[in-house]
Every structure is written in structure tokens, then in C-alpha cells.
Amino acid sequence: MADIAIPESTDLIPLDDAVTPAAADAHGHGDHADTGHGDSGHADSGAHATSTGLSNNKLAMWMFLGSECLLFGGLISTYMLYRGRHAGSPSPSQLYNLPLTSVSSFVLLMSSLTMVLAVSAAQRGDDRNTSTWLTVTALLGATFVGAQVFEFTEFYHEGLGFTTNLFGSSFYTLTGFHGVHVTVGIIMLMALVGIINRSKVPGNKAEVVEMIGLYWHFVDIVWIVIFTLVYLIPS
């Protein structure tokens, strides 16, 4: 539930919503007598060539990611403010299992590599490798989430519940929000693999893969920040 508001509603949507250039071109606009502009946007319902020459979907995705910076910024700040308030539970530095988190951070980092390889394969039109790399990415993501669940369970047994103190609440909220983002990403990746295998991707396949890739890398860079600010810097 936690994350219904942002990713589920907006992440998936832009993928196919804009009219894809291929589809619009196919209709042959016989009557544009005086085109003349390299960047002409005969914005029929969705523009087959846009005013900036950039894809609608990609613009939307980058804006969404810019917006997400303020979401995670707020959560990170909340954690920063409250990380020292851990009365009734072990302190962050006693609690954190640095080797485990380092390994899971590494796994997430490598999932960015496999994601980018999937995008690269998709741009070559190589469906088989696209599916393979997407699956590997999803598996690495699942490993990360698994490690997070394990970590949460450990912390809980060591005495840090969601409601124990402000440190606990803000820690679980921040990392939980991130975990939900990763989970949403995994669902999108797996759905995408299924759709590619059935050759049912609406619109431009390579672009759909690229969009999900951007989202996935964003989740990764958020973790780069969280890993350093939350785990490596002691309070």
C-alpha cells in the first residue's frame, strides 16, 4: 500500500501513452503541404515529430524522476533529523550489518549493469538477450529485496520495531519506500519479459525497455545515496 501514490500510478503509464511515432507515421499524412520545418509538430493526437524532437515518454520519465528526488529528499532528511533518537533500541552503528548491506548494495549496483545491457540489446532489436538481461536484472533486484527483508527481520529481533522510536520509524520508512520502489521495478521487469515473449509490446519496444531502465537506475542511485548517508556515516 505504502507506495500507491507515486510509482504505480505514474511509472507504468507513460510507457505507452504517447502516440508512438511508428503508429502515427503509418497513416501517411497526405495533406501537410507546407511542412518545411525540421521540427514540425503536426501534433495529431500525439505528435509523430515533436517540437523539441524528443520523445514524450522520455521527457515525462525524466520529469517524474526529478520529482522523485524531492520525495526521497524528504524521507532522507526525516531520517537524518531522527537518526540519533534511538532510545529503547540499539543504536544505528550497533545495529547495521555492514558486510551484508555492502553485498546487497553491490548486487543492486550490478543490476544496473544488467539493465543497461538489456536496453542495449533492445536497441539492437535482440529480443532474446533483452529478455535474458531483464530476467537477470529482476533476479538481482529480488536478491536485494530479499536481503532487505532479512535485514528488517534481524533488526526487529534485536529490538528495533517500526514504532520503537523515531530512529526506527524513519529508518523503516525510508528504506521501506525504497524497497517498494525496487519491488515495483521488479514487477515491471517481469511483466515486460512476459509481454516481450508474447510480442505484445504496445508502441516502441526499445523505448519501453529504456523507460523501465531509467526508473531502475534511478532506484539504484537513490540507494547509492542511502547506502552512504545512512549506513556508512555513523550518527
Partner: peptide, 28 residues
């Protein structure tokens, strides 16, 4: 590095860079 290379921002149109980094710097 992730933003520039994996997300292609280094090679893409500057509008994307502007949109993303304005959100980031505003947040900071």
C-alpha cells in the same frame, strides 16, 4: 556516473539533464 552513463544523460539532450538536475538541486 550512473546518471551520465547508464542513464545516458551525458549523451542525451540537455533538456533531460536540466529537468532531472533541477529537481535534484532543488531537493538538496
Amino acid at each position: 556516473m550512473v546518471v551520465s552513463y547508464f542513464m545516458h544523460l551525458k549523451f542525451d539532450n540537455k533538456i533531460f539533464t536540466a529537468l532531472f538536475y533541477s529537481g535534484l538541486f532543488l531537493a538538496i
